[in-house]
Design a protein around this nucleic acid. Structure first.
Lengths: 364, 364
DNA sequence: GTGAAAGCGCTAACAG
DNA sequence: CTGTTAGCGCTTTCAC
């Protein structure tokens, strides 16, 4: 492992170019207000010396870091089951990079880490945060809001929809209103999926839910209910089985479902992985898909959906785009905040819901 | 999005505690050399004011950042196919967190990003780097070595084993020697897998390789060859099919294999995902596993191996531990480097190879 | 053991 | 348009 060497400073560049530090600083930061011959001399000096600005020194005076924290809570759970977070990270990374911002990754597991993250964010090491808080009742979103760091959430946080009692919990009552988050239209997507099954002539449409401590699972369940409620007799509570977004959970749920309602003729699974498990059990049980039972998933994880037998009809969401959008929203908010310093921060403080599309393959 | 507020400084704490800034600084940084009553007063002041040190100011003088970059090249490829990187990241994150270091994530896609990453690392924003460079001939490792940042690689880089012509390429000839990397024993693991198949009495043992532009795939292939070479007639080149670590690649390869050698009675797949595809094709073709064809994978991605039919026998590597170890190695190197500043950096500059273990399930 | 003072490298007024 | 100057908040000799 090689040792780091001391790098040239602004001073050195200034000396070499025969100008003042201020001039070099101007050139380095965009160069407006410096006449061309001089600017060129400076640029050459920078080049020759291999000068790179010292970010610490810069942050000290500008109070900016050009860095954003990405907080992912509870990685044990879902992060590693499917490439969901990897895709979001990629979208985030691209957008941040395009705006010369750095990505500081904070992975947490449990309460102990919450304090650490809160302290870090409150410590003003980053300009903002992108937070994935999957679970209902997760204290993290609250802690982070309290840290006073501009934040965009990934997925609707538990208390976003006005369900929270005003003034409850933490002290900053009312601040909860301007929660910015990016999510896909879970409820709408679920509706489309179920409607599709009904349009296929299915009358016993079941739903295998996701982990119901996550808003996405709740929203998809709501969407399912919206549609089956319209059908007379379609709304049989035994047709809803709770599961957890995993293939083995999908298997268990499907078995349960077949036991309860052998006449089920369609399944809307909360995600593709769940559908995968369900398909397996259906095959085992001798049911044909889609002839006997039609199946629709959610997510459109291509490596999964195209590999199933039969290929899976599913509701597509653009995960990478969600990540990109989260970053864009945050950066934009930061830029706005800088322009009109004391202004009410209410402007773009609204959630963004991305559309979903039904991808028809062979399973329904 | 809430605005950040100005935070208390050392000065403020000093004033409140009725001491000098220097004293507060001492207490905050471990507190040796400060008498107890005073120290306690300072701690209380810190607490009351919610003081958090300004990392930028601190870095400016200490030239340390307590931050490490994690560079992951070409995320399109494998990162999102399996949870490999997610697990490594988790191990890395845990170790860094335990030592109060931050994780700066750098995702790259192609040459354009290489320059950016090199510049960032050379810019001295982080104390060190953990680099995953999967592909042979990737210029990134070289660039990073040139940046002069202490680095630990994940997986053996292309030019680690003395295969490189000394002094070729970049200017810092000889510096290539002290490459530190962490890898699992790919070759040894492959040997064990193949030996196991032979011990089972199989005589036509095939290998579906990984993407051969990655050292892990090459090493596993070498391990396979080591063992089959011992068996008379076992070394039939038609038994080796090149693939790419993906399920669909595994399918294609398995089909090819059955066409070439219908008498194949065992398959060592370069990873579990490949094995998954192979199993699918074997089932289609009417072969029973393991009766007709035994199958062994590599990685032991539990969500995969336990879900296959039959459950997959595989070579286990501890991916999270690899990540943890990379971080530990780097941090240790940094600490050592600080203690004996000018000393030759040769000490722990050796690769670490983690052992693998064969996990017997039903497929072989 | 504690405080005073000198910067770390940079930006941002303010003069000129 | 360019240079001078005064810090940003912290650590770290060096006196006391």
């Amino acid at each position: 492992m090689t040792e780091a060497v001391s790098r040239p400073t602004l001073e050195a560049v200034a000396a070499r170019a025969g100008v003042s530090r201020a001039t070099v600083s101007r050139v380095v930061n965009g160069g407006d207000g410096v006449r061309e011959p001089l600017a060129e001399r400076v640029r050459r000096a920078v080049e020759e010396l291999g000068y790179v600005p010292n970010q610490a020194a810069r942050s000290l005076v500008t109070r900016r870091h050009d860095a954003v924290a990405v907080v992912i809570a509870e990685p044990e759970s879902r992060v590693f089951a499917d490439p969901f977070f990897a895709l979001q990270l990629r979208g985030i990374s691209k957008e941040l990079t395009a705006h010369d911002n750095q990505l500081v990754l904070l992975l947490t597991e449990g309460r102990a880490d919450h304090a650490r993250v809160a302290r870090y964010l409150a410590g003003g090491h980053v300009d903002g945060a992108l937070v994935f808080s999957l679970h209902l009742d997760d204290p993290l979103p609250g802690l982070i809001q309290d840290a006073g760091v501009p934040t965009v959430f990934g997925g609707r946080p538990d208390w976003g929809e006005g369900t929270r009692v005003p003034g409850s919990g933490r002290g900053r009552a009312g601040a909860d209103q301007d929660v910015v988050y990016v999510d896909c239209d879970n409820r709408g997507g679920a509706r489309v999926a179920v409607r599709h099954l009904l349009d296929l002539g299915r009358r016993r449409v079941a739903h295998i839910t996701g982990a119901l401590d996550q808003t996405s699972a709740v929203d998809r369940l709501d969407g399912y209910r919206d549609v089956v409620a319209e059908v007379p007799g379609g709304c049989d509570p035994r047709l809803v089985v709770e599961s957890d977004f995993t293939p083995s959970g999908g298997e268990r749920a499907m078995r349960e479902l077949l036991a309860r309602c052998p006449d089920v003729d369609a399944v809307f699974a909360a995600n593709d992985l769940t559908a995968l498990g369900a398909l397996r059990v259906l095959r085992e049980s001798g049911r044909r898909v889609p002839e006997d039972v039609a199946v629709v998933g959610f997510d459109d994880m291509v490596p999964v959906t195209e590999q199933t037998d039969p290929p899976l009809t599913t509701v597509r969401q653009d995960i990478e785009e969600m990540g990109r959008l989260m970053a864009r929203l945050l950066l934009q908010g930061l830029a706005d905040g800088r322009h009109r310093e004391g202004a009410p921060a209410g402007t773009a403080a609204a959630p963004v819901i991305l559309p979903t599309t039904l991808i028809r393959r062979a399973s329904a």
